[in-house]
Design a protein around this nucleic acid. Structure first.
Length: 929
RNA sequence: GCCGAAGUGGCGGAAUUGGCAGACGCGCGGGAUUCAAAAUCCCGUCCUGGCAACAGGGUGUGGGUUCGAUUCCCACCUUCGGCACCA
């Protein structure tokens, strides 16, 4: 490397030079299977938007980089990769609006964002870089999708298994098929011997081939179903719930969204609900995030109860968490989509019901939520019988009951359920008390626990006891059973868009839905001129995936029968690619497997450091608290079940960095004012031209608020090391905090002072530096600093690690002689934070290679101790004096010394000493009155 | 509405988890250096009173526990994040 022996700190020269060095020497290449403990530090990979990087991204990347560099110096084999989550709506929408191909914009955006990321000097192993849009990557995303398609959830194994095993079991008659197409476990030893075959059940061979196929398809983990979806005609696609705003509009573009029943691809994540819930406990994630995952899964326990239908043989099935309130059920409600509505509606009521249904169906999400406060519904002219008291109760249809939860029908207990009470009051339905609340509380609308009343023989039971008793009773009477429900729904997995992974499926008139065989993967996304979706303003328009325009491509042959077949035209949603990228980083160039099993085990298998297994440290924003993390956990568990992953969970430890926001200024008229117009010298800040006082707030960065900070500009002016350290110094990593460019020079000054401590003006090593032994005070300062910085990195308290390094520099600058060895240790401590300047100083201190693998400095607890300590002397909790005593002095001698102090005697003149409390090495408190 | 996180100087924030509130940085005031400026270095900087030593007050608000509370308990206020008719 050519020497640039400048005397001044030139961040541009130093940073570009060391970035080149690291690249040329492949300094950060991770070796698979190396004989060292492994450590996998992962960043949530970015979406390469046209906006490029903002100052929020590097906060997490810097923290993970500090951890990665620290762990390398601690002797770990560190895997620290980076890639791009590049499929999805934003890129495509941008492409549509600008008339460019999404591949072109995506490639441009990736190149741009990568250039930006590389300016920070992160220690990524760039040889593992990937993008979800690479054919070599999404070939395996398609492969995993087919694994789901070709699997079922085996309740006996409580795991996913190949679908062939189900077929085998059906052929062996381990399972029979109920009249409604459900699997029944054929327990030959018990049931059949006594009862014969279960009533109405059929055997697999008794089904016609088409029926057999239908049954198998209904068990696949990836399946097609007609479901109510969020249909956005303007975008021409269906959207996931999370892509729809609270106002019932599309997050992208703010277009209206409608509920429509459409046939779509679904992933059966609900089969994993219990495991996804249970396994959260063992993860080292922030508690609030774990709570959000639990709430999203939304497990509840209660009972399934059968209400006989008046005048019919069948029953209406409801789910309730409060079976103890059965005696208070005075009416029932069906969701508008409930299959029995049509059948049950009495002749007289048909017009009203039909009318209500049309209105409900027409409503957009917006209207449905906007009217959420006012309950609507109609009586359908039919009755059910309350099984506990044989009372005839009316059945209504109302959209406050959702088809997607429970059975889509409820028993209404207006006395003890807020929604039911609102409805009952509006439509004048009877309200019967069945729970006695604690004294002083009105029973009307009381939803808490209490004592049972008006409940026949169950009167007097507590809510908890009642629940147990009634479930027992219902089970005995065959009127119900214990039941568990989850809020979690199956994952809507198809999009009518171009820029996504094509689903590797063909539809054959003869063979049905057929998976492409492995050797036909990848199914490449075909090139097309006009990839725009069929956008429309008509809510009744139907989805028309852009791929359908490619007639020649869509027409294909069936891999099974070689007959003519139609390709699946939908693509996968944006979340798909991010579900397994952390596995691909382990073995990114493998074209025979998604990841080599041996390599996968080396990095992911549980060990003594990481008993759960998976990525050791995952850092990213809390905005992915639920969806990405839940979806990825689901895919991972599937791969685990099928033997492709060796840990039950993908991410053992998770850390959420806080959002970086910035100050925004508004004048008295509420207009936003750009930073260049703000005079911050006084309070309040004023407008430079008009002198008007401005209101300062902290908000998300946005163009309209004129408070966007561009990281490139900051790096250009102050350097990457300064940028990195500033972001870590701002405050706790997990806290949301405001960027303040005015604070940045303070960090740069710190680095410059360090530079001048080591490098003289002529560029040589500073003459004060020598090889003499450091004095005791310097040694103590160094050991304290090693201790603090090491501990703080482990807990990612990086702000306080940096202040300790500042304290060191402030103190050590005063020392007359500078020890080369002390400075070297210090530079090593600094290196994870500010790697470029650290490498440069390391070299100038006489080393020829990178410091990235130098052993991390160790401290001696003994050497961190101060020989003397200052104690505060308090009287009744107020500091009145201070004394300096040898460290660890005994309490008795401290007590004597303190009571003899002149100031203290004076203060105690009129008082009696009641108690003297000595806190070793901290303070003394004299209690007196 | 429900759940979660957080309120400390002019600003960002620290405080060994019950032990000297305000570390560290920014800003501000004063000084040194300079022909001058930038840069750099030194001193000061929670508020009130005082030249000062010092005294009083102070961690969103009100109460409580304790020798002692930013830290623990109760009630309330505010901000941010998530969920939202989930039976």
């Amino acid at each position: 490397m050519e020497p640039t022996e400048a005397g001044t700190y030139d961040h541009r020269a130093i940073e570009s030079r060391w970035q080149r060095y690291w690249q040329e020497h492949q300094t950060f290449k991770a070796v698979d299977g190396a004989d060292k403990p492994k450590f996998y530090v992962l960043d949530m990979f970015p979406y390469p938007s046209g906006q490029g990087l903002h100052v929020g991204h590097p906060a997490g990347y810097t923290a993970s980089d500090i951890l990665a560099r620290h762990k390398r110096m601690k002797g770990y084999n560190v895997l620290h990769p980076m890639g791009y989550d590049a499929f999805g709506l934003p890129a495509e929408q941008y492409a549509v609006e600008h008339g460019v191909h999404p591949r072109a914009t995506t490639e441009k955006n990736i190149a741009n964002i990568e250039k930006q990321i590389k300016m920070f000097g992160f220690s990524y192993d760039w040889s593992r870089r990937l993008a979800t849009t690479d054919v070599g990557y999404y070939r395996w995303t398609q492969w995993i999708f087919l694994k789901m398609f070709n699997s079922w959830y085996d309740p006996a194994a409580d795991a996913a298994r190949p679908i062939e095993q189900l077929i085998e079991k059906l052929q062996n008659e381990d399972y029979l098929i109920s009249p409604i197409g459900e699997l029944i476990y054929n327990d030959t030893e018990n049931l059949a011997a006594i009862l014969g075959d279960p009533v109405g059940a059929v055997k697999f061979y008794e089904l016609a081939p088409a029926e057999q196929r239908e049954l198998i398809d209904s068990q696949r983990l990836a399946y097609m179903a007609q479901v109510p979806v969020n249909w956005c005609p303007r975008l021409g696609t269906v959207l996931a719930n999370e892509e729809v705003t609270n106002e019932g509009r599309s997050e992208r573009g703010n277009h209206p969204v409608y509920r429509r029943a459409l046939t779509q691809w679904m992933l059966r994540i609900t089969k994993y609900a219990e495991r996804l819930l249970a396994d959260v406990d063992a993860l080292e994630w922030p508690e609030p995030i774990k709570l959000m995952q639990r709430n999203w899964i939304g497990k509840s326990t209660g009972a399934q109860v059968y209400f006989p239908l008046d005048g019919r043989d069948d029953v209406l099935e409801v789910y309730t968490t409060r079976p103890d309130t059965l005696f208070g059920a005075t009416y029932m409600v069906l969701a508008p989509e409930h299959p029995l509505v049509e059948e049950l509606t009495g002749t007289n009521c048909r017009p009203q019901v039909a009318d209500y249904m049309t209105q409900a169906a027409k409503k957009s999400e917006l209207e449905r939520t906007a009217e959420s406060k006012e309950k609507t519904g109609v009586f359908i002219g039919a009755y059910a019988v309350n099984p506990v008291n044989d009372q005839k109760i009316p059945i209504w249809v109302a959209d406050y009951v959702l088809m997607g939860y429970g059975t889509g029908a409820i028993m209404a207990v207006p006395a003890h359920d807020t929604r039911d009470m609102e409805f009952a009051l509006k439509f004048d339905l009877p309200i019967v008390q069945v729970v006695e609340p604690p004294a002083g509380t009105n029973w009307r609308g009381y939803v808490g626990d209490g004592i049972a009343v008006n409940s026949g023989k169950f009167d007097g039971l507590t809510t908890a006891e009642f629940k147990e008793e009634i479930i027992k009773w219902l089970t005995e009477q065959q009127l119900g059973r214990r039941a568990v429900n989850y809020k979690l729904r199956d994952w809507l997995f198809s999009r009518q868009r171009y820029w996504g992974e094509p689903l590797p499926i063909v539809h054959c008139a003869h063979c049905g839905t057929v998976a492409l065989p492995d050797e036909q993967l990848p199914l490449e996304l075909p090139e097309m001129e006009d990839f725009t979706p069929a956008a429309s303003d008509d809510p009744d328009s139907l989805p028309q995936p852009p791929l359908g325009k490619l007639r020649d491509w869509a027409q294909t042959t069936c891999p099974q029968c070689q007959g003519p077949a139609q390709r699946e035209l939908n693509t996968m949603p944006q979340w798909a690619g991010s579900c397994w990228y952390y596995l691909r980083f382990l073995d990114p160039h493998n074209d025979r497997a998604c990841v080599d099993p041996q390599i996968e085990r080396y990095w992911m298998a549980p060990d003594s450091d990481n008993p759960v297994g998976g990525v050791d440290f995952y850092i990213g924003g809390a905005e992915h608290a639920v969806l990405h993390l839940l979806y990825a956990r689901f895919w991972h568990k599937l791969l685990y079940d099928l033997g492709y992953a060796s840990s039950p969970e993908p991410f053992r430890r998770l850390f959420n960095q806080g959002m970086i926001r910035s100050f925004a200024y508004r004048d008295p008229r509420g207009m936003t004012v750009g930073y260049d117009q703000v005079d911050k010298s006084g309070q309040p800040p004023r407008h430079k031209q008009t002198g008007e006082p401005l209101v300062e707030t902290v908000e998300k960065m946005s163009k309209s608020l004129k408070n966007v900070v561009n990281p490139n500009e900051v790096i250009e002016q102050y350097g990457a090391d300064t940028f990195r350290m500033y972001e870590m110094f701002m405050g706790p990593l997990e806290a949301s905090k405001p960027w303040n460019t005015n604070d940045v020079p303070g960090i740069q000054r710190f680095l410059q002072r360090l530079w001048r401590l080591i490098v003289a003006e002529d560029g040589c090593l500073h003459p004060a530096i020598g090889d003499a032994e450091p004095d005791a005070a310097s040694l103590r300062l160094l050991h304290k600093t090693i201790k603090k910085v090491t501990a703080d990195i482990e807990t990612l308290s990086l702000n306080t690690a940096i202040s300790q390094m500042m304290i060191f520099l402030n103190e050590y600058s005063k020392a007359a002689a500078r020890s080369r060895w002390v400075l070297e240790s210090y530079v090593l401590l600094l290196s994870p934070f500010a790697p470029h300047i650290a490498e440069e100083l390391w070299r100038r201190l006489g080393h020829e290679t990178t410091l990235a693998y130098e052993p991390w400095p160790v401290f001696d607890e003994e050497l961190t101790r101060d020989p003397e300590v200052e104690l505060a002397v308090q009287i009744n909790g107020k500091v009145r004096d201070r004394i300096v005593v040898p460290a660890d002095s005994d309490e008795e001698s401290i007590r004597r010394t303190v009571l003899a102090l002149a100031k203290i005697q004076e203060q105690l003149a009129q008082k009696t000493v009641r108690q003297v409390i000595v806190i070793p090495n901290r303070l003394v408190n004299i209690v007196a009155n």
